[in-house]
Amino acid sequence: MMKKLLMISLILYSASAQMSLTERGKELFMKYNCNICHAPTDDAASVGPSLETIAIHYLGNERQLMNFLRGEAKPIVDPVRFGIMKPQLYKTKHMFEEDYRALAYYLTSVHKNQ
């Protein structure tokens, strides 16, 4: 009985921790005005790749996404248009480690939640 309660508690904690990561990531996404260039789904009028496209390329590779946001890795999504994004990276270069995780989690959450 005790093991079942512990397992249920861990599952609930894990689900709430993931939810808070998604929420924190969304807050950062909005705070840094990422939504100006990155729409939720593909849109010809968008400046940058959509969240959907980012999720497709970085899901399972969140560490590389975090390194990109730090300015330490090359983009794997639409590298030809990276020049537009490069000046914006100063906003994310000095975040806390938890913020990188949250933003990466949010950016890939489009596919995690389908």
Rank of each mutant, 00 (worst) to 15 (best):
L6T: 09
L6P: 03
I8T: 12
S9I: 12
I11C: 12
S16G: 08
Q18F: 08
Q18K: 06
M19L: 12
M19G: 10
S20P: 04
L21M: 14
T22I: 15
T22W: 11
T22H: 14
E23L: 15
R24H: 09
R24E: 07
R24P: 03
G25Y: 00
G25T: 00
K26Q: 11
K26G: 05
E27I: 15
F29R: 02
F29Q: 02
M30P: 03
K31C: 10
Y32F: 11
N33C: 12
N33S: 14
N35L: 15
N35C: 14
H38M: 07
H38A: 03
H38G: 01
A39G: 05
A39N: 05
A39R: 05
P40N: 03
P40I: 02
T41E: 15
T41D: 15
D42F: 07
D42W: 07
D43H: 04
D43S: 08
D43R: 06
A44L: 10
A45F: 12
A45W: 12
G48L: 00
P49D: 01
P49T: 01
L51V: 01
E52K: 07
E52T: 04
E52H: 10
E52Y: 05
I54W: 00
I56A: 09
H57M: 13
H57N: 15
Y58R: 00
G60C: 03
R63C: 11
R63E: 14
Q64Y: 10
Q64F: 07
M66N: 01
M66L: 09
L69F: 07
L69V: 08
R70I: 05
G71S: 07
G71L: 05
A73T: 14
A73Q: 13
P75Y: 05
V77P: 00
D78A: 15
V80G: 15
V80F: 13
R81V: 10
F82N: 09
F82L: 09
G83C: 14
M85A: 01
K86F: 08
K86D: 11
P87W: 01
P87S: 03
L89I: 09
L89F: 06
Y90C: 11
Y90D: 14
T92Y: 02
K93F: 08
K93V: 07
K93C: 10
H94Q: 11
H94G: 13
M95A: 05
M95V: 04
F96V: 14
E97I: 11
E97L: 12
E98R: 14
Y100G: 02
R101C: 06
A102F: 03
L103I: 03
L103C: 02
A104G: 04
A104F: 01
Y105F: 11
Y105L: 04
Y105T: 03
T108D: 01
S109W: 01
S109A: 06
K112C: 03
K112E: 09
N113Q: 15
Q114H: 10
